[in-house]
């Protein structure tokens, strides 16, 4: 896969005239930029700005480039920026297979085969018809990541992705996520409170 990079040029976000953050960074393929800070520091608003759905109440400036393409004017669904939330947020009305298919671009050929392979690659062979609610916490996290990767993003945002997991599960899921992101060669921004997350990400850290 071609090397990709995500560039944040002088990004500033303010709320009611009070500046929340200023970030200037380049994140190369397979790297994770970690943003740490207390609640209310605007970490999540940075991700919302990059993803393309920052609430209008915020004032934001700064240019975003992904692989040289200018992101600012594109709507969220055309930015090719994937997002992992605190919760796995598997669509409760779809099966596990349906959730994966939701991520696959419409133009893709033989989606059933893609889903089968994807499930096999995360150790969930034959789970196509399962109700997502019946999965364990770790399984849900893996499906959520797999769904994101199937949507063929060019960059990934992680919004405290491990904070809701138990301690033992957290390490396992964390290693899995970072490994898959590195393999896919995707630039990522992670927002977290957790020092261990930052260490595991093994990249630049910005403290707010």
């Amino acid at each position: 896969m071609k090397a990709q990079h995500l560039q944040l040029n002088n990004v500033r976000i303010a709320l009611q005239g009070r500046e929340l953050l200023a970030v200037d960074a380049v994140i190369n393929a397979g790297e994770v930029l970690t943003v740490m800070g207390p609640s209310g520091a605007g970490k999540s608003s940075l991700l919302a700005y990059v993803a393309g759905f920052l609430a209008p109440a915020f004032e934001a400036s700064g240019e975003l480039f992904l692989d040289g393409a200018h992101l600012n004017r594109l709507p969220a669904e055309q930015r090719r920026v994937g997002l992992l939330f605190q919760d796995p947020l598997l669509f409760p009305h779809l099966s596990v297979g349906g959730n994966l298919r939701f991520g696959i671009p419409a133009a893709a050929q033989d989606k059933d085969a893609i889903v089968t392979d994807a499930l096999a690659s995360i150790g969930l062979q034959g789970f196509e018809q399962r109700d997502p609610e019946t999965l364990s916490g770790g399984q849900k996290s893996r499906v959520a990541l797999q769904r994101l990767l199937l949507s063929q993003p060019k960059a990934v945002l992680l919004d405290e992705p491990f904070s809701r997991l138990d301690t033992h599960l957290r390490r396992e899921v964390r290693e899995f996520v970072f490994k898959r992101l590195r393999e896919a060669g995707l630039p990522a921004i992670m927002v977290t409170h957790d020092q261990e997350d930052a260490e595991a990400a093994n990249g630049a850290v910005i403290a707010l």
């Binding site: 709507p75 090719r80 994937g82 997002l83 939330f85 939701f102 991520g103 769904r147 949507s151």
Partner: peptide, 21 residues
């Protein structure tokens, strides 16, 4: 609101978000 945001980051447009989510 995260359902719609999530669907958008997976590439779903407004109408897809509406009908499918």
């Amino acid at each position: 609101p995260r359902w719609a945001q999530l669907a958008a980051t997976l590439g779903a447009g407004h109408w897809q978000v509406f009908w499918k989510v």
